[in-house]
Design a protein around this nucleic acid. Structure first.
Lengths: 191, 191
DNA sequence: TGTACATCAGTGAACGCGCGTTCACTGATGTAC
DNA sequence: TGTACATCAGTGAACGCGCGTTCACTGATGTAC
């Protein structure tokens, strides 16, 4: 049942998109290819017609995650007044909505501690994604070229990722809410 | 070859300590009980004489990690002048030394994104550990009871964890160094 | 344009392997008299 | 205190299962004449 080239490349993209969702939901190591292909509505045998290994899919899925989430958030700030874009971006990121939707959220916050144990391709994608987030944040500053903006944007980036990661990790729901509220406010006030 | 009660409880503690190391090095999901018991110098069959499941060991190992790392760092600040303890603590945490020694470092930075998928016992241990870190940080502030200290300490906590997580995740070594240097400095200046 | 043939996307069974867990066994430790 | 017996920490083989990966097969798609 050979499929057309167009269909085949759609299938491939669909597998990557499904992986991006499943990895963020369950973690990379805990996501099996069998379940992944089922979630994509396919049988597992066809996987190797598109990818040479799980590792390759991980790299591609991470690449896609890193860029797309930041871009989607940036897109949503477009209609905000320039002076409020930074606050809007940070508050959108450090939010209960983001905390409760890992499968569509930032890869640093959902996969961060697994990434250090991934292939160099995946970790290169992480570098690119991190720089992208930092540059996006820096672009929201009143004077993006000031000498301290890079360091401030980096501090925001790690604080935001850490906040969502920890808000998801703690078992106490009230504490989790508190992390979101306090860090969103304090990060913005401090930077 | 029954062992004495004393020996047995030493064995148990040794398994927990080994797990705490291996989990932080390889991740929880990626650490098998067979390899874990080998690393502890034991055979795998004896595991269930001490624990009812892997999940139980995960909870105990995480409990131990969360508290011990913060306490060890706090201990090292003891001989610093009170006014410099906060900076000393933050700089020790957000350091290349910490980044390069995950197996002995903070559990948030090495296991953070896996914790949200763990048992409620493990996530409760995470709450306790997080509160412990925040309270430790708050105690270093000039006026620990000021109304904004809790929020500031929380912001430091998530920023510190996020910095080490991301410094380990990115493939680019220079960028990683930059994350450490910029965030340690900026966090302290901002808070 | 129509026909014959090669290609290959997707299927589903099978591979070896390591996972978490169980179990019969061993013999030193702990307990009871 | 000494002896007899029960306990149980640790061993190593085995369990079923799901993992990542391979493969023979299928039939629609793509290609060549």
């Amino acid at each position: 049942m050979r499929k057309s080239r167009e269909e085949s490349s759609k299938t491939r993209a669909h597998i990557v998109a499904t992986a991006a969702r499943e990895f963020r939901r369950n973690g990379i190591a805990a996501t099996g290819l069998n379940g992944l292909m089922s979630a994509a509505g396919l049988t597992h045998g066809g996987f190797y017609k598109h990818f040479s290994s799980k590792e390759q899919l991980v790299a591609e899925a991470c690449q896609s995650i890193m860029i797309s989430v930041i871009d989607a958030l940036t897109e949503r700030t477009r209609h905000e007044p320039p002076a409020e874009r930074l606050a809007f971006f940070v508050n959108s990121y450090v939010s209960k909505q983001h905390r409760d939707n890992a499968e569509a959220g930032c890869g640093f916050a959902s996969l961060g501690t697994e990434l250090s144990r991934c292939s160099s391709e995946t970790r290169d994608a992480t570098s690119v994604g991190y720089r992208h987030l930092v540059q996006t944040l820096a672009g929201f500053f009143p004077d993006p070229d000031a000498s301290d903006v890079l360091a401030k944007a980096q501090t925001l980036a790690v604080g935001m990722s850490g906040a969502i990661m920890l808000a998801r990790a703690v078992g106490d729901a009230e504490l989790s809410d508190q992390i979101i509220e306090n860090t969103a406010r304090t990060l913005l006030a401090a930077i």
